[in-house]
Design a protein around this nucleic acid. Structure first.
Lengths: 233, 233, 233, 233
DNA sequence: AATGAATGAGTATTCATTCAT
DNA sequence: AATGAATGAATACTCATTCAT
């Protein structure tokens, strides 16, 4: 994706090195209370505008108007549209990936159900901005990288669990943990998007239950007190 | 990102009115061999440019240059960037969803494997443009609608098959066909994107096999000659 | 004549929708002294360019160059070429139609002469832009509407005066006030255009006198101290 | 009005020297029957399109489509948009200026009435295209010149008549023939445009009568059998 | 820290006219 | 003489970013 536009810092190379944050690039202005306040207002406004218009069509002007600050002040706090977007996105996805702590003795199937439920709920609470993040990830290499990184981190967690289940004899050993993790994680992500960002007849509870059932079946796990899953004989 | 323009009504149109516009909007120009050739060249060029630059950054100029035609000739064939994109996208996604007919007596599991393999291969052959289609679907309502429509059509096919398997006692009756269809279809789509458009260690064959296994397990199907799936007792 | 453009809706607007646009359309920027200055410079420049090139051939670029401001700044103040034109036109025609108040006891014929003189002088002072307004009124429905509205308002004033003259027995009762008002008003307007925008041998003073004489005769009015008008026997 | 556009023969210098008709410029193709037929179709179509869209917005494409001929064939018959317009315009105004032959002994007032009636009717029959001619005359110097030339020729006829009336003692000698001719001719022209090209409550018959009355009064003429015009004492 | 005016690169689109067939 | 494809000059408009106050 070569840089075609000529404007100053087009997206791809704007937030490069994320977290690396060029020393003179990142603006803060969090020193005074008033400054912090304005910054927060901008972030809130940005989220609103991004959700409404998508990243591509969102205009900084609108963000400023929404935040009730002047046009030029934006640059006191953020260097580019990309930067503020990244910050908005970061503040969001964190919730999504927060894996809830469950009691030690929670049943494995229940754990999966809880994780799925949490994912769906968290996604639902941020469905619109999630789809925008999705959009940006198809445009901007850095955002895409971050997204993939998170996806992989998520998949790794799942992978470890699958591996553990297999080791304890509770999951089909023929399932490849890495592949299954990516596939099942993707399945839930995909479904969540479908559930909240399109018109359809799905409902959250059934979705939770069904995704869990599929997940459990897929791994060849046993439902508690039900005998072997998916066995008909 | 200045491609997002849109001039004001301009004094002009004011007095146009009447039946001026007429049907002359639809462009075809497939009357001459030369015309058809040029059109084809444009479509090829467009695909190339979209793959390289993505929809947002693709410029009509580049498409024309690549096609070796003059600037203005583009509009002899297409009205907007969106239109040519849609045509490119349509020609692609069709292949993808075409599920090749398998011999009558093909084993159900094998059928699934074949379908998955086909999907992955077809996706792989068009991976780059597929991701662009993805991008556009997050930007343009029409493209999104078309995409969803196809996704649903695809899901319905899967749903019917699941239902049939359940009726013949070959699939877990507790799985909800509609939910499962959307989930499993999404899973494969998601994985395909991951497989071809990111750096990772997955390979096509294993992916085919694993996705199939998960799919089969998820539905509680039995692998041929292996006894009940996912049963370990 | 490419000024008559008008881009397609462009994918963009598709997802804008919602309450995006908002009220931000109306541009003002009269907040700062500097801003007001620039605006004024733009209006002056626009008048100059419109007078020189006519509306059709006038380019916004030229207006900006003439005003000594950058290209994009135009849009800080005006949305379209039409808008700035309308504003220029409005500021002009006002003078034209302002009928100066004459002393109470002014002779009716003198009143007419004064009005004609004022009209011709005012027209003369803005002859070039007047002809451009004329041009635009043949192109743009809005400008045409405004023009007609004014013309009619003007005609109504004349009509009322004719009616009063008839009531006091000072004008031919067979003359239809509404028709005459439109006819005589149009006569002066037409003559003014001819006088200032073409090569001919007319001069302002004779024109004033003659138009007045025709007007007075037409209404069957009496010249002061001359006995009945148009009577030669 | 400097040449701003870059297209080949922009209007102003296109029809230059009218009737001079550069030897190689004017295309004819009136040799075959088919050719003459096509030419006629083009002229009809052009009139229709010009009336509907005005000169500025009329597109040659539309003219061709309307005429049912191919795009490129236009240039077999006409060199430019201006040329075909001029030809359309010429064929129209002729009728308008045709002064009807009245019986030798026709009353002078009746003569004026007949002339006015003819003018209004002829204008009415071509009102729309007349307003387009008006438009073009504000854009194109040549068309403007032609228009003025005709207007002046018309005015001269009127002027001669006024002079004759004055010589025979039938018109106010204080009226300046040249000024009055321009004024009264313009009055009728202006009224005609108003009558047919705007929404108003005027009707043709009253207009004819009133314009005649004003005209007759203005010149201080006597209505037949009514004693001196506009005399009330 | 805030304001709002100024900047200017970037690109889509139209349509009269030409040209190869 | 007809067709229709190709050309390309011309220009309006957007919006991220900078800058003077």
């Amino acid at each position: 994706m070569p840089e075609v536009t000529g404007r100053k810092p087009a997206i791809s190379n704007a937030s490069r090195g994320r977290n690396a944050a060029g020393p003179e690039k990142r603006r803060g202005t969090g020193r005074t209370y008033r400054g912090r306040e304005t910054r927060r207002r901008l972030l809130d406004a940005a989220k609103e505008v991004f959700e409404r218009d998508g990243f591509v069509h969102a205009r900084i002007t609108d963000v400023c108007t929404t935040a009730g600050i002047s046009h030029g002040s934006f640059y006191t706090y953020f260097v580019t549209k990309e930067e503020i977007f990244t910050e908005v996105a970061d503040s969001i996805e964190l919730d999504l990936l927060a894996i809830e702590p469950a009691p030690e003795d929670t049943d494995p199937v229940e754990r999966i159900r809880l994780a799925n439920e949490h994912y769906l709920r968290a996604y639902g609470a941020n469905a619109k901005i999630m789809s925008v993040i999705h959009q940006v990830s198809t445009i901007d290499a850095d955002v895409r990288a971050t997204r993939l990184q998170r996806q992989n981190a998520f998949a790794e967690v799942i992978e470890r669990r699958i591996r553990r289940l297999q080791e304890s004899g509770d999951a089909d050993p023929l399932v490849h943990p890495a592949y299954a993790a990516q596939a099942l994680g993707g399945m839930v992500a995909h479904f969540a998007d479908n559930l909240f960002n399109t018109d359809n007849d799905f409902d959250l509870e059934t979705a939770t239950e069904q995704l869990t059932r599929i997940w459990v079946n897929a791994l060849g796990m046993r439902y508690p007190g039900q005998g072997p899953a998916a066995t008909r004989n």
